Computed example of a mutant assay.
Amino acid sequence: MAPAYSSCGCIFVMTLFMFILASSRADAAVTSTAVLITVDQSGNGDYKKIQDAIDSVPSNNNELVYISVKPGVYEEKIVVPADKSFITISGLKANNVIITWNDSGNIFESPTFSVLASDFVGRYLTIQNTFGPGARAVALRVSGDRTSFIGCRILSYQDTLLDDTGRHYYKNCYIEGAVDFIFGNAASLFERCHVHTLSEGDAAITAQRRESPSENTGFTFLGCKITGVRTAVLGRPWGAYSRVIFAFSYMSNVILPQGWDDWGDLSKQSTVFYREYKCYGPGANARKRVEWSGKLTDNEAGIFLTKNMIGGRSWIRSTPTRFKKASTAISNNSTRHA
């Protein structure tokens, strides 16, 4: 197979710029007024804990709620319930708003941060599970639809990001782990993210769980950077029809020449959809890739190179520019819990 990357850096940069520019125009330009809630461990906000701020939002909420989190290390196990949509939780810098917990075991019970609601946005947060090697230890579970994470750091070792169900958008995020650390059956676009593997051998970065050709799910990594400490493969199939695409992405020599693994099931080689498109770097050389992976043609690549693949034109929203005080109900909750 011919190498799947361009040898001309200038062509790559120009092409990537054009795709990103076209993609960014698709962002939903929502500038509605949001209810502002502040979280500050010093006591100078509405709440000292992030979960208390989430709990204050009424069930079946239909207003934009912006929870601004001041710098600090928040030792909390956080859940955004399914009946509390339209919430944004934001720090100013991911390095100074750290949400941390230490749990392991069940992938649905161990997460430090679980998003069950739709229309959620996380911005400039560090979300980590500090359990380390030896067991499943999820940092972030995303099970709501139309969910975005911008400029976040997502850290664990095994099963870091449970990208469970729904349509998701990750932009400028740093995601770190060792074993199957981006996994699930969502339809997700990872744009300009840094993916760092802690694998010491041949562990997989992704374990996508698409189980039927009729499911419109899969992971696309667009303009990303792949680094690591030793060696790893790009993915292995949790589901028989697992679908993962890497496009315009830099791959360091951490990526093993074969690129992909069939998880010991030869039958999945004929059903998975593992593709690369104009990636570059020493780990992107496709000459020794497994024969059941491949390269996208220009025509095939089109749908994966914009936010259209997740319907993002209609739901990815920009940061609110106007804010108002919380309603009486939320203010009363603040008085009781602060």
Rank of each mutant, 00 (worst) to 15 (best):
M1T: 12
A2K: 10
P3L: 12
A4V: 05
A4W: 12
V13H: 07
M14Y: 13
M14H: 11
T15W: 09
T31F: 12
Q41I: 10
G43N: 04
N44P: 00
G45I: 05
D52R: 02
V57N: 03
L64Q: 10
Y66R: 07
V73N: 09
E75R: 07
V80R: 03
A82F: 04
S85H: 12
I87G: 07
I89W: 08
G91Q: 00
K93F: 13
K93R: 15
N96L: 02
W101V: 01
T112V: 05
S114Y: 02
V115P: 00
A117W: 04
A135T: 01
R136T: 05
A137L: 01
T147F: 15
S148D: 12
I150A: 05
L155D: 06
T160W: 11
N172W: 11
I175M: 04
F181V: 02
A187D: 04
L189K: 02
V195E: 00
S199W: 12
D202S: 13
D202P: 07
T206I: 07
G218C: 07
T227K: 08
G228F: 03
V229T: 13
V229L: 12
T231C: 03
A240F: 07
S242I: 05
V244P: 06
F248A: 00
Y250E: 05
G259S: 07
D261N: 15
L266E: 15
S267Y: 04
R275V: 02
Y277W: 12
A284S: 12
R287P: 00
W292Q: 08
L296Y: 09
E300Y: 15
F304K: 01
N308E: 05
I316N: 01
I316S: 01
F323Q: 04
A326H: 01
A326Q: 13
A326W: 00
T328A: 15
I330H: 03
S331N: 10
T335D: 08
H337V: 09
